[in-house]
Design a protein around this nucleic acid. Structure first.
Length: 511
RNA sequence: GCCCCCAUCGUCUAGAGGCCUAGGACACCGGCUUUUCAUGCCGGCAACAGGGGUUCGAGUCCCCUUGGGGGUGCCA
């Protein structure tokens, strides 16, 4: 990046509205966002909705939502507006048609009259014969009149670009020079039979009209770039700087596909997180997700790993982006999440927790726990009691007993056996003793409870575990919860005592 | 098949010819702390894909092989 680029950086993220924002897409936006931020440029959000058959209802809303959750803002695009709109390609058809006409008139493009079926047959035959197919340019080329006449008959006709008979070199900021030989080119389709432009045309026209300076996109687009360069030359456009990002895979090397989720569900396995939304629902913090994906294909060096968006912006640079594909390691993400959760302010953590809850309740709000309405103060207490947690989902699991009615507590048989029945019901005996002491308490605070339990431990010359675990099982049904005095305090005297009595009563039922 | 890209611990990576006895982080394995689950602390294991060059010297440059990935759509 040279000095004269400063202030003129205009980058874009151009998703197709086919579902939630994919985690790989998130990294692409992030890098674009960082570049724009670093050089005081603009990030443009453009919706590439030229394939009506793949359009998914409301997915633009979902993508915008995911970006907001990540705190990645855009300067132009849906909701933001801008001087280069519209930002939906489906609303820019007249623009594409104008350039299409120009190309047709100058002879740089031509109508191709094969039906999809004919093309398919040609491809199949060629693949059988040589293993590969390249569209053979007709000789002579159909005239414009001919193309128009066929179209007038109601038959779908496509427009193809006449590729130049010369090598094309992509000057990539990450990969260096990549040359595709002249004999590898193919006259590709720029307008589909339904009158929509293909991705290539729309992309090139928009990048020019929107004055895009740098294109940072996935490496799966590398082989499209010579096509785009040819189109730019035919149209008299300039060529933006290109940087093709390495691809992100699953830990086993397979593609991170949205279909992995359906496959896992079919097998009865928990679905893996693939889309940004999945990570949100699973209880990850946007700070951690962003930090983690920034390190997939990029590194600031000097053994630095953890930083927020601001530091990232300072550290970011395109020449530190690597060429090697990366595998997505959820274990490391979890570790990052743990660190971020420990580092964030209470206010921010509370906000993030509420976002997590709302994503899981489909936008609804969690309203009641055993002791009444759920307030911010309650959520703060919960988060504090769960310090050291890895994801919000773990927080949920740990405090579920606070959202369960006394009669609905499910006692884990293993826990009951190990903690209560063992040693001739030593656990139950402990509970009976503790019940009396709890009933005598006039104050129910964490401190009071803690010192009471400590006293019991000393008196009985036993470990705290023998005191705490029976209570834990009695009030939660299982062996996992926040520290015992905090668990008791949060539950409150009424429910705590009720559950201990209930637990003791259940023992009698069984004997 | 053809074209293109890539190659350091299991994973993410540092490494711009001597600073490399190859560094960090996650995971893993030990140990400590602990009231459960976590957390925290200490220690350990672990890599330059293979082969040729170039050079006084190669993880770093070149070539080949192998392996991985992408493209080869009227998808983007």
């Amino acid at each position: 990046m040279t000095l004269q680029d400063s202030g003129n950086v205009r980058v874009r993220f151009a998703p197709s509205p086919t579902g939630y924002l994919h985690i790989g897409g998130a990294r692409t936006v992030l890098f674009n966002w960082l570049l724009a931020r670093k050089y005081g440029g603009k990030l443009i959000l453009r919706i590439e909705d030229t394939d009506r058959t793949r359009h998914v209802e409301d997915s633009v809303g979902q993508i915008l939502d995911d970006l907001r959750w990540l705190r990645l803002t855009w300067d132009e695009g849906p909701e933001a507006g801008g001087a280069f709109g519209p930002y939906y390609q489906s609303e820019r058809l007249d623009l594409y048609n104008k350039y299409l006409d120009q190309l047709l008139a100058s002879g740089e493009a031509y109508y191709a009259l094969e039906t999809p079926e004919e093309l398919g047959a040609m491809r199949a035959a060629a693949e059988k014969a040589t293993g590969g197919f390249r569209y053979p340019r007709p000789d002579p080329l159909p005239s414009i009149e001919e193309g128009l006449a066929v179209r007038a008959e109601g038959r779908a006709v496509v427009v193809r670009l006449k590729m130049p008979a010369a090598d094309i070199t992509v000057d990539d900021e990450i990969l260096g020079q990549v040359t595709v030989a002249a004999d590898q080119h193919e006259d590709f389709v720029i307008q589909k039979g339904d009158g929509f432009p293909t991705y290539h045309l729309a992309c090139v026209v928009d990048d020019e009209l929107m004055k895009i300076s740098h294109v940072l996109r996935g490496q799966e687009h590398l082989m499209n770039t010579p096509k785009h360069i040819a189109l730019q030359r035919a149209l008299g456009f300039s060529t933006p700087r290109y940087a093709h990002l390495p691809v992100i895979f699953n830990i086993d090397g397979s593609k991170m596909s949205k279909r992995d989720k359906e496959k896992a569900i079919k097998k009865g396995l928990p679905p893996p997180e693939i889309d940004v939304h999945d990570f949100r629902v699973a209880g990850y913090l946007p700070e951690a997700v962003l930090n983690f994906i920034s390190l997939l294909g990029w590194s600031p060096g000097e053994d630095r790993e953890q930083f927020d968006l601001q530091e990232m912006t300072t550290l970011f640079s395109v020449d530190r982006i690597g060429k090697t594909n990366a595998k997505f390691d959820r274990e490391k993400l979890q570790s990052f999440n743990t660190d971020w959760a420990a580092r964030l302010s209470e206010d921010r953590l509370l906000e993030a927790y509420k976002e997590y809850l709302s994503a899981n309740l489909d936008g609804g709000e969690i309203s009641e726990w055993v002791n009444g309405p759920v307030t911010d103060a309650v959520l703060r207490l919960i988060l504090r009691a769960c310090r050291g947690f890895r994801t919000f989902r773990q927080v949920d699991a740990k405090v579920r007993f606070l959202f369960t009615a006394d009669d609905d507590i499910v006692y884990d048989p293993k826990a009951v056996k190990k903690v209560l029945k063992k040693n001739d019901g030593a656990g139950y005996a402990m509970l009976e003793d503790l019940l009396n002491r709890f009933e005598a308490l006039t104050e129910w605070t964490g401190d009071v409870l803690e010192s009471l339990l400590n006293r019991v431990m000393t008196e009985k010359e036993t470990k705290l575990g023998h005191v705490a675990q029976p209570i834990r099982v009695a009030i939660t049904g299982a062996t996992i919860s926040p520290s015992i005095h905090e668990s008791l305090f949060l539950l409150g005297p009424e429910h705590s005592l009720a559950r201990i009595r209930l637990c003791l009563a259940k023992r009698e039922d069984e004997s």
